[in-house]
């Protein structure tokens, strides 16, 4: 009994000591997008190895979850940096402000391409965004015209576009919680959706319905939610040559012997095509820094310098080796200058 009491007492003291410890933190805490995670972690590791500072802790919480944690307040118990595979929303900036997080530094780090790939053993697809929309949307315009929307009737790719093979539509993609899914829906589906004039006209009048049409993916089995794990999608594609899969460019880059990226709008998903912006399904990656923490938590400024150095995000930097697509020189030097001066984010209202 005495022993038990001692152990309990020890645990309670440990708990008390920890709240003291929370009053100061000697490592950088980063949260946010799982898409930026592989890049942020490389920078963090290099930073930890080459400086006297501790290696930053990086949590993979998703863009939305990361911004929620980030905006929870100022102080050592809140993260210093959040990664995002999309830009911060004005609603999130407001939430930040209501919790006292006023000065946020925005850093764009580069681009990530989203590829639609299939197994090497099958012929390469040549798609347009319109094809993707017609093949995957929940509701599509009636072929007879008239601006009427019907439940997606297409069974094979040939039904969608006569030049495509007559295989059944089967696409493995990420679930709605994933940033990759958001980006795919926004860039590919909406891009194809907009090619119908009457839907495009709807955008001005009724944005909600417009989004509902363009952003809804069919639920009749043609689109299969394959989970967040892109490696799994690659494996499934390999064993099922009839299927297409949606995932990030770095997985295509690593598995070029197993899968091939489909051509979208006449552009193949290559490093160069994503970098110069001609490949249509690519998105920018960001991270956001809490300016109030700079100087309080050791190493933030040095970490930013490492991230924005040419040896990291430059055209031959180590982030490129990990599959990130760098920004053009001019954009890069502009963001590097913003970071150096810790210029605060201003969203255009």
């Amino acid at each position: 009994m005495i022993n038990n009491r001692l152990i309990l007492a020890a645990a309670l003291t440990a708990a008390a000591a920890s709240s003291v410890q929370a009053a100061s933190r000697d490592y950088i805490s980063v949260v946010g997008s799982s898409t930026v995670y592989p890049f942020a972690t490389v920078v963090a590791e290099t930073f930890g190895k080459t400086t006297a500072f501790k290696t930053p802790k990086i949590e993979s919480t998703g863009s939305g979850g990361g911004l929620k944690l980030f905006c929870a307040g100022v102080g050592v118990e809140h993260p210093d940096i959040t990664n995002a595979s999309r830009r911060i929303k004005s609603s999130e900036v407001e939430r930040c402000a209501s919790n006292g997080v006023n000065d946020i530094v925005e850093v764009k780090i580069g681009y990530d391409g989203i590829v639609i790939a299939n197994a090497k053993s099958a012929p390469q697809f040549n798609l347009t965004r319109r094809d993707l929309f017609l093949a995957l949307a929940k509701k599509v315009p009636n072929v007879n015209g008239g601006g009427e929307l019907i439940d997606n009737p297409y069974k094979t790719w040939q039904d969608v576009n006569a030049s495509l093979p007559a295989t059944a539509i089967e696409v493995l993609g990420p679930p709605p919680t994933s940033g990759t899914r958001d980006a795919f829906v926004e860039l590919a589906m909406e891009g194809g959706c907009k090619t119908f004039d009457f839907i495009k006209a709807m955008k001005k009048q009724d944005k909600k319905t417009y989004k509902g049409i363009c952003h809804s993916i069919r639920e009749d089995g043609a689109f299969i939610e394959a989970g967040e794990n892109d490696n799994l999608i690659v494996q499934k594609l390999e064993s099922n040559p009839a299927a297409l899969g949606i995932f990030g460019f770095s997985f295509l880059d690593q598995n070029a012997d197993k899968v091939q990226g489909s051509i979208v709008d006449n552009v193949a998903p290559t490093f160069e095509a994503i970098a110069d912006g001609s490949y249509p399904v690519s998105r920018p990656l960001y991270f956001y820094v809490k300016k109030a923490h700079v100087g309080k938590i050791p190493g933030i400024q040095e970490f930013l310098a490492e991230f924005t150095s040419d040896k990291a995000w430059g055209e031959e930097g180590y982030l490129v080796d990990k599959g990130m697509i760098p920004m053009p020189n001019q954009e890069r030097s502009q963001f590097a200058a913003d970071v150096k001066g810790l210029n605060i984010l201003r969203l255009a209202k």
Partner: peptide, 27 residues
């Protein structure tokens, strides 16, 4: 993602199954 090996119950750390989960998701 934690590189430094934790030295106590208060250092940030991860656990074995989480490490497996993180690696399984790496490209």
């Amino acid at each position: 993602f934690i590189v430094d090996i934790p030295g106590g119950a208060l250092d940030p750390s991860t656990v074995l199954p989480v490490q497996i989960f993180l690696w399984a998701d790496s490209p």
